[in-house]
């Protein structure tokens, strides 16, 4: 490519060479992004309106999430490791050790530690604003569907009950929520939005009235 431009340089003006270089660069960029942009297009289309103040709120939420991950990863490192071909007994042993370690390390955890009032307010407002009435209806149908009557305790640092199903997180709604590290997942229980630890299923935090 450099050789081509060098050759062109002998016959064309510097402006023409620069313009050609920009055009080629644009073509390359378009071609590469053209291969990879479906998800970005979807994400952009689903991107909620975020004010500068909201950005700060999300940033602080992210910092609290990272702080949590640091603590839980420290506890996880001490629990038995699970291989990709573990037995059910090994899975249970690792879960039990991790859950008890994590609960002990977060004994003083309170509702709102992660879902502080500012991020909770942002999430509520975003979910109310970002969906059409039809979408809201469809999302509510998914979120409020329950297949068992097993009660989930609204208590931080308590395990999500083992036999209880997980309500599907509607994909378009997930794209509206602030992203989480892989160690955490959003989960709905009725109108309540929870943060669950992926590997331990402990309820890390929850916020009420979080339905679109």
């Amino acid at each position: 490519m450099i050789a081509i431009f060098a050759g062109m340089n002998q016959r064309l003006s510097p402006f023409a060479v620069a313009a050609t270089a920009v055009a080629v660069a644009c073509l390359i960029t378009t071609s590469v992004s053209g291969q990879q942009k479906v998800v970005d297009q979807i994400a952009r289309a689903e991107q909620p309106v975020v004010s500068p103040a909201d950005q700060q709120t999300i940033k602080r939420f992210d910092q609290r999430l990272k702080q949590y991950v640091k603590v839980r990863d420290r506890v996880k490192a001490k629990a038995p490791k699970l291989a990709k071909d573990s037995t059910p007994e090994q899975i249970q042993a690792a879960e039990t050790a991790f859950v008890s370690g994590l609960r002990a390390s977060r004994a003083g955890a309170r509702p709102g530690d992660l879902f502080s009032s500012d991020i909770a307010q942002y999430i509520r407002a975003t979910l109310k604003r970002e969906f059409t009435p039809t979408e809201k209806k469809e999302i509510k149908q998914v979120i409020l569907e329950k297949e068992t009557d097993i009660a989930v305790p609204l208590k931080v640092n308590y395990p999500y009950p083992d036999p209880k199903e997980f309500v599907e997180m509607p994909a378009t709604l997930l794209l509206k929520l602030p992203p989480l590290p892989k160690q955490l997942k959003y989960r709905y229980v009725g109108h309540t939005l929870m943060l669950l630890d992926t590997d331990s299923n402990l309820i890390i935090d929850y916020m009420l009235n979080a339905i679109p």
């Binding site: 998800v39 994400a43 599907e168 997180m169 997930l174 992203p179 892989k182």
Partner: peptide, 14 residues
């Protein structure tokens, strides 16, 4: 499909 977040969609597309 129970948790189709952006990270999974990106992996899938890649």
């Amino acid at each position: 499909s129970n948790y189709m977040d952006k990270a999974q969609l990106k992996w899938f597309e890649d």
